[in-house]
Design a protein around this nucleic acid. Structure first.
Length: 324
DNA sequence: AATATGACCAACCGCTGTTCT
DNA sequence: GAGAACAGCGGTTGGTCATAT
């Protein structure tokens, strides 16, 4: 089913998206939601297939994306998660608010893999390369299935050193089970009346996977300096905005839930790059997206104090891949 | 200055699983 | 139950940019 049938029937645009196309898609989705993706292009006036629209929205136009360079903490987390989950990019992305699976996949393939190899670690198995060489199968090649790291069901490889990580985590099965999964504590899907209104458009359509995760896994977020919620310091507005912009909209304004969509965080993205000296990664929509999304709504709430809805965020953020 | 090379990343492709008819 | 439609995922490709020669 790779390519939708519509793509064959019509002459559809491919390749990079123009600002005009982005604008059309943003306007449509902010106004109506995406609903059925296959109908989006027609309704939005785009000569693209629904699949392409979906990808563009998820990977680039969503207002809750963090963008910018990955921090060391994030890289650490990706490595840790990859050691357990393998190339399950969507599941890894679910643990990194504001990051997309595509972004993480690209980072892994272009940067982290290389770094691990340089430090003598096999990026596929997370074992020392010397160990891999010693136990190399006679065929010499690793088949596709074995390339991925072990799964939660498999036995983990022996704990190895993590040259990239200051405090090497015990990369063991138990470690991650304890950290992420609790087979005794099922998180029930939220009742429909509990669905907060700031969730992405079709939250209520999301399927609830039977994955059972422990609530303690929120520890991962709230003890991580990057992911631990907005800083309380009033002097750290930029960082706070950065956090807000990168957390999938799981926050609420002090005067009520902030609906999905525009945040102050979006407004501040270019400033953040300046302040933090990060790579100047300003794409056209980093600058103009807020205006497309309704500049007035930014300006109408310049001093809103956001607070994390920790309970909801904790519950939702521990559900793999539901909101990517 | 021109060309080659490598890195990065947005987007596409093809597949699987789920839902709908 | 079967097939179509759809959403989502992971692998791969190709364009762009930066750097080296």
């Amino acid at each position: 089913m790779g390519r939708h049938s519509c793509c064959y029937k019509q002459k559809l645009r491919k390749g990079l998206w123009s600002p005009e196309e982005d604008e059309k898609l943003i306007r449509h989705i902010t106004k109506f939601g995406h609903g059925c993706w296959s109908s989006v292009p027609k309704l939005a006036g785009l000569e693209r297939c629904g699949k392409s629209c979906r990808l563009r929205w998820i990977n680039y136009l969503r207002p809750d994306l963090k963008r910018g360079t990955f921090s060391q903490q994030e890289e650490k987390l990706i490595i840790e998660l990859h050691a357990v989950l393998g190339n399950k990019w969507s599941q890894i992305a679910a643990q990194l608010p504001g990051r997309t699976d595509n972004e993480i996949k690209n980072l892994w393939n272009s940067s982290i893999k290389k770094k691990l190899k340089q430090r003598g670690i096999d990026p596929n198995t997370h074992k020392p390369l010397s160990e891999i060489d010693d136990h190399k199968a006679p065929s010499g090649s690793i088949d596709k299935t074995s390339q991925s790291s072990y799964t939660l069901e498999d036995k983990p490889p022996p704990s190895t050193s993590y040259p990239l990580i200051d405090d090497p985590p015990p990369a063991t099965h138990e470690f991650f089970l304890n950290r992420f999964v609790n087979h005794n504590t099922a998180i029930k899907p939220p009742d429909s009346h509990q669905v907060p209104e700031f969730l992405p458009f079709d939250y209520t359509q999301q399927k609830h996977q039977p994955q059972q995760l422990q609530t303690e896994s929120a520890d991962l977020f709230f003890t991580n300096p990057i992911l631990s919620g907005p800083p309380r310091s009033t002097t750290d507005n930029l960082t706070q905005n950065n956090w807000l912009s990168g957390n999938n909209g799981f926050f609420q304004a002090a005067n009520g839930y902030q609906p999905f969509g525009l945040t102050d965080g979006m407004k501040s993205q270019t400033q953040i790059h300046d302040v933090e000296g990060e790579q100047d990664y300003i794409k056209w929509n980093d600058q103009y997206l807020p205006f497309l999304m309704g500049k007035s709504s930014i300006e109408s709430k310049p001093d809103v104090n956001f607070e994390v809805n920790h309970e909801v965020y904790q519950r939702i953020s521990t559900s793999y891949g539901h909101f990517s």
